[in-house]
């Protein structure tokens, strides 16, 4: 009994200590926003108060859900492709000096091309359907994954490599049993950054041209002065992004349980 209390009480306190400040700041901001709009009688189409954004979310929940699902699909598929291709490319770069020298410059150069100029071209090439958005998401989230993974695979301690060699390890064994496990924490960081930019990528892709999705909904609602709907879409998108980030964070914590030294 006593031990149960001594464990659970501090953990509740810790959760409260962690979550109360941001919740308080958020609530204060929303109240100030509401008061400001009402006190100065700001036009609703210019800046809707939080209360009407919440109303909009409730009223258009069907519409928002439908388009959120489209955006989510683009993010998940594009991100999964980026993770898969990123892991393959990073492995090739880390495994072979020649591949590193021939591929890595292009990986870096690819990031210098503004995605906003590629997105309309993709639209022309593959059409306004979901594919072009998936490609944009993939292109934008693949870079942090590759760079982090390559850094991780190359951060292997030379003494560890020598230890493997004295045990008769082949290059392949060193790669599989030393370089890849060493790179896992780096991969997790790359995935966290990747999932955040994936959300941005989906919206950019939809903004340029689409047949559905939250970005498309915002693009369509703004000129009609449905500002509350734009904000409602932003709220849904933000919540979705935070949840995706939290999922990757959760996976990271599960995976890194086996890396006590790095935690």
């Amino acid at each position: 009994m006593a031990s149960a209390r001594s464990v659970s009480l501090p953990s509740i306190m810790n959760i409260a200590r962690e979550w109360l400040p941001p919740l308080a700041i958020g609530a204060l901001g929303i109240i100030a926003w509401e008061v400001w709009v009402r006190a100065f009688d700001v036009q609703r189409w210019l800046l809707p108060p939080p209360s009407s954004i919440i109303n909009e979310i409730v009223d258009s929940r069907g519409l928002l859900t439908e388009h959120a699902f489209i955006t989510l699909q683009e993010i998940v598929i594009g991100f999964a492709l980026a993770a898969g291709f990123g892991a393959l490319l990073a492995s090739a770069i880390a495994y072979s000096k020649i591949l590193e020298r021939s591929l890595y410059p292009f990986v870096i150069a690819s990031q210098m091309i503004p995605i906003i100029t590629i997105a309309p071209l993709l639209l022309v090439w593959v059409g306004p359907a979901m594919t072009s958005k998936i490609i944009v998401v993939g292109l934008i989230s693949f870079f942090p994954i590759v760079v982090n993974l390559v850094d991780g695979m190359k951060s292997v301690d030379q003494d560890m490599v020598d230890m493997f060699r004295t045990l008769g390890a082949s290059k392949r064994q060193i790669f599989l049993k030393l370089q890849i496990p060493t790179a896992i924490p780096f991969l997790m960081s790359g995935l966290k950054i990747g999932v955040v930019v994936a959300v941005i990528g989906a919206v950019i892709g939809e903004w340029v041209g689409a047949t559905g999705g939250l970005g498309w909904l915002m693009r369509l609602s703004a000129p009609q002065f449905l500002t509350a709907r734009v904000f409602a879409a932003i709220v849904v998108l933000t919540v979705m992004g935070v949840i995706l980030f939290a999922i990757v964070g959760l996976i990271e914590r599960m995976v890194l349980k086996r890396y006590p030294r790095m935690n």
């Binding site: 560890m160 045990l167 008769g168 496990p181 896992i184 890396y259």
Partner: peptide, 25 residues
């Protein structure tokens, strides 16, 4: 290489493997 065991001052254990898995390497 592979025919002489070599143990260094640093233990060079893999942090992501437990004792049994480190030994079995």
């Amino acid at each position: 290489l592979g025919h002489i065991s070599y143990m260094q001052q640093k233990d060079l254990l893999l942090p992501w493997r437990n004792v049994l898995n480190n030994a079995a390497l």
